[in-house]
C-alpha cells in the first residue's frame, strides 16, 4: 500500500516537466525515505536522479519498498490535468499494475481520479557515490538557462571552465564563437541571486548543449542551480526542490581531442 499526499501539487508537475524530455520510461522507487527516481536517457549520456523526501509530503505512507515503472510522457499528460494549486495524491497497491493520481482542488469541491497503467521497465540502477568535486558553482538558475539557450544558438557544445577568475561558458560554431564569464558575486540583495564559486582545482570540460538545455527545463523548480565539476567525472547539475529533495542531472563530458596530449600522465 502506498499513499503519498503532496499539497504543493505543482511541484510534481514541474518535476515531470523537467525530466520527461530526457527520459521516456523510468521506475519510481518508493521507500520509507522518500519517492525517488533514477534513469538514464536513451543514449546513456545523461542520468537523472530525483529525490522527494518523505517529510516533504503531507502524508506519506509506504508499507513496503515499491518500484513503479511509468511512462513519463503519459504521467505528465495526467499531471497536466491537475490544477496548479491542486493537492496531488499518489496511490498504489501491492501487486497492482496501476497507479492512481488524485487531484483535489484547494476548496475541496473538485476531486479527480486518474488511473495510469504501470509498466515493467528493465532499468539499470547505477551506483552514484558521493564524490568531491574540483569546482562547485552555484548561480541563479534562470541565468544558467539563459546562458545555455544563448550558446545553443551558436554552437553544439559548451566548454565550462572554472578558474580563480570565475566560470566561463564558451562555445564555437559556424558563425563564430561566444564566451560568457561569470564572476563570483555574493554582494546581492537576495541570496538566490548570488553566484558562488568554490574551486579546489581549475577545471575545464566540454558538454553537449542539447543536454544542458534539457536540464534547464528544471529551472522553475529552484531559483538556484548548483553545477559541480571534476575533470574526470560527469558534471552534476542540481536543482534543489524546496525543503523536499532535489533533481540532479549527470552528464558525461565530451572527449576533447587535444585533452590527452595536454594532460600530463600521472
Amino acid at each position: 500500500m502506498l499513499e503519498l499526499r503532496l499539497v504543493q501539487g505543482s511541484l510534481l508537475k514541474k518535476v515531470l516537466e523537467s525530466i520527461k524530455d530526457l527520459v521516456n520510461d523510468a521506475n519510481f522507487d518508493c521507500s520509507s525515505t522518500g519517492f525517488s527516481l533514477q534513469a538514464m536517457d536513451s543514449s546513456h549520456v545523461a542520468l537523472v536522479a530525483l529525490l522527494l523526501r518523505s517529510e516533504g509530503f503531507e502524508h506519506y505512507r509506504c508499507d513496503r519498498n515499491m518500484s513503479m515503472g511509468m511512462n513519463l510522457g503519459n504521467m505528465s499528460k495526467m499531471l497536466k490535468c491537475a490544477g496548479n494549486d491542486d493537492i496531488i495524491t499518489i496511490k498504489g497497491d501491492d501487486g497492482s499494475d496501476t497507479v492512481t493520481f488524485m487531484f483535489e482542488s484547494p476548496t475541496q469541491d473538485k476531486i479527480a481520479d486518474f488511473e495510469m497503467k504501470l509498466m515493467d521497465i528493465d532499468s539499470e540502477h547505477l551506483g552514484i557515490p558521493e564524490a568531491e568535486y574540483h569546482a562547485i558553482v552555484r548561480m541563479p538558475s534562470a541565468e544558467f538557462a539563459r546562458i545555455c539557450k544563448d550558446l545553443a544558438s551558436i554552437g553544439d557544445t559548451v566548454v565550462i571552465s572554472v578558474t580563480k577568475e570565475g566560470v566561463k561558458f564558451s562555445t564555437r560554431g559556424d558563425i563564430g564563437t561566444a564566451n560568457i564569464v561569470l564572476r563570483q558575486n555574493t554582494t546581492v540583495d537576495k541570496p538566490e541571486d548570488a553566484t558562488v564559486i568554490e574551486m579546489n582545482e581549475p577545471v575545464s570540460l566540454t558538454f553537449a548543449l542539447r543536454y544542458m538545455n534539457s536540464f534547464t527545463k528544471a529551472t522553475p523548480l529552484s531559483n538556484t542551480v548548483t553545477i559541480s565539476l571534476s575533470s574526470d567525472l560527469p558534471v552534476v547539475v542540481e536543482y534543489k526542490i524546496a525543503e523536499m529533495g532535489y533533481v540532479r542531472f549527470y552528464l558525461a563530458p565530451k572527449i576533447e581531442e587535444d585533452e590527452d596530449e595536454t594532460k600530463p600522465e600521472t
Binding site: 538514464m40 549520456v45 545523461a46 551506483g127 549527470y250 558525461a252
Partner: peptide
C-alpha cells in the same frame, strides 16, 4: 560524447 555508464 562520453558515456555515463563509463562513470557509474
Amino acid at each position: 560524447q562520453g558515456n555515463i555508464l563509463s562513470f557509474f
